[in-house]
Nucleic acid binder design. Structure first.
Lengths: 350, 350
DNA sequence: ATGAAAGCGCTAACAG
DNA sequence: CTGTTAGCGCTTTCAT
């Protein structure tokens, strides 16, 4: 009885081959190769030399089965082809690869896929841990994830059950809106995230809250007609602004909850023959690569750190000496004033 | 002697549990669950029911070890956080996830990492196959990959040894340049890719060739001062154009080999108080998400298909009935004329 | 159509 | 410090 021959793959050296070559047992090879204690330096050297000669690499599947660890982690994102998520994934991958982990990227564009991921994550034993980025998880999905026992970290939102890395989204909405209000704007439109998602995804809501609070402080009433969803896309931003400009009393400033929606907004405004910021100010969130080029005022978040910090938290959890308690890290944000925001029409510049 | 207890993970049902529950042997469970022939329909149903009841999922590491297949594939890209690569990865992931493969994303930002990937890919047995996207592989690296025996597909470049999906980059350079020439431009700058990479990465070279050929056909001499590297980044594009505009005889049109560099170019031109396209025309390559918003003329490539087609080719290779010979797929490109290109100054519009 | 048995290649108690 | 001995959980001959 022999193993099925994976036709394409040539024979590789096994731990037994190395053991024979080095004149020791397989167990010693295993210990020597993994820098475990209790191996004589001379033995270790001999084993390593033999391994080198035979081009030996431990078969990850065999070690995984035997050791119960995969040295792989999953990064789950709603989609990968947006600026924000690709930055987060990139930053996480860099840290994880450095620490010797394989990175499985899982996109969950539909609720069904998201659920499938949550259900399988724990049961499947494919990974040692998961980083969950901005997934609108239902309470029972969070429960399932917790019960499955997979070590996990969330990025972008907080569950209370996993370590997390977030920004203060209420503050983001507040700071941005206040900037606009400070410039004399009294009609401030808001382009929020997706409205049709049945699940509670907290980021847009939190920013919305900040927006409304800022308005209230100024004694301004929130106007539902000035709150439109832009679905976090360029196109969505464009459409949202178009409908706002059609209002009898259109906004003189617009806050988009992402830079990409803000780009769409700028385009729509200019397409009407209006100027930014003379006629309408536009403010985004993120500090996208192109925000500077587009001269877009925005609230910067340290996107790469959303990924790298999550990765580090997870590694700590996986390799933790048992010592550290779960951390909730909050990353700072910063208003970056550029040329897309200016005094409200009819206001003297400050 | 018992296996190391991965403290966090609760007990899961094993194949033996299901076998007991269904009153059959483990072998039958294995066959039933994988839709193998030679299982009585009634038995299969009974096994599936038992599996369902016990929430059984085969441990991937155990199957991998026993079967020699991982049902995972690696997608290797230079970096993940650029528009192009994140689109390719996203498209590949969608197809692969659909086919039941795990997707490992590997970025190779440095030559060292790239080499490490190539060396390990075959030896490591972590994946059944690899998709190699736009990696500037040295001939010996390609050799190593071929010898390692991993099934592979290349996207963006062709090796002759693996199936590939590419676009005609010479044509891209030629079509773009011809468009500019047709508008009466005689000084056409070129912002190419990275120049400092010691390896031969063919994409920029091919496009450069198309550019030069188009120039020649028009009887124009190539001017080295008009060929600058922009490193495929916004910033690089900006700097490249700045230096061109400083020339005694500056270009009236610029072809950037990526839209992102083109965005930088537009910004630099405007920063000088010049207008696009009245003073300088700008043309990009890709049809980036924001190209339409920016009203950028560009040569569109079907980026998502670079990823999805590569994925499909790889799946065919992995699951191939042995029938199909390696394919080299060439994807179509298309000039998309928008507002960033116009007649050369002093030319009547056509 | 089903079961028994022999591994896949490695790790980790245990004993020395 | 090192070797022996059992597995990890599944797949696959081979025999029935």
């Amino acid at each position: 009885v022999s193993a099925p021959e994976p036709a394409t793959t040539p024979d590789r050296a096994t731990i037994e081959d190395v053991a024979a070559e080095a004149g020791v047992s397989a167990a010693t090879v295993s210990r020597a190769m993994r820098d475990l204690p209790n191996v004589a330096p001379s033995t270790r050297a001999r084993v390593r030399a033999a391994a080198e000669r035979l081009q030996y690499r431990a078969d990850p599947n065999a070690s995984r089965l035997a050791a119960g660890r995969t040295r792989a982690v999953a990064v789950a994102v709603p989609v990968v082809n947006t600026w924000y998520f690709s930055e987060v994934v990139a930053a996480a991958e860099a840290v994880l690869a450095d620490a010797g982990y394989d990175v499985l990227v899982i996109s969950t564009p539909t609720p069904a896929r998201r659920t499938a991921f949550v259900v399988q994550a724990g049961r499947q034993r494919r990974v040692d841990g998961v980083i969950v980025v901005d997934l609108a998880l239902a309470p029972d999905e969070i429960d399932a994830l917790v019960r499955s026992g997979v070590p996990g970290v969330t990025s972008g939102f907080r569950t209370g059950s996993f370590p997390s890395v977030t920004t203060d989204n209420v503050a983001i909405g507040h700071v941005a809106t206040s900037h606009l209000l400070g410039l004399g704007h009294e009609r401030v439109g808001l382009i929020t995230g997706q409205a049709e998602d049945p699940l509670h995804f907290s980021v847009p809501d939190d920013r919305l809250r900040g927006y409304r609070t800022a308005l209230e402080k100024q004694g301004l009433a929130a106007d539902p007609a000035l709150e439109q969803s832009g679905n976090f896309s360029v196109e969505g931003g464009r459409e949202a602004v178009q409908s706002m400009l059609d209002l009898a009393d259109p906004p003189t400033a617009v806050l988009a909850l992402s830079d990409e929606m803000a780009f769409g907004a700028v385009a729509a405004i200019r397409a009407r023959g209006l100027r930014v910021p003379e006629d309408v100010s536009v403010l985004g969130v993120d500090d996208h690569d192109l925000a500077q080029i587009m001269d877009l005022t925005t609230v910067r978040q340290p996107v790469d750190r959303q990924g790298s910090t999550a990765a580090r938290l997870l590694i700590a959890e996986l390799e933790g000496d048992g010592g550290g308690r779960p951390a909730d890290v909050e990353l700072p944000t910063e208003l970056v004033v550029r040329g897309s925001t200016g005094p409200a029409p009819g206001c003297a510049s400050p």
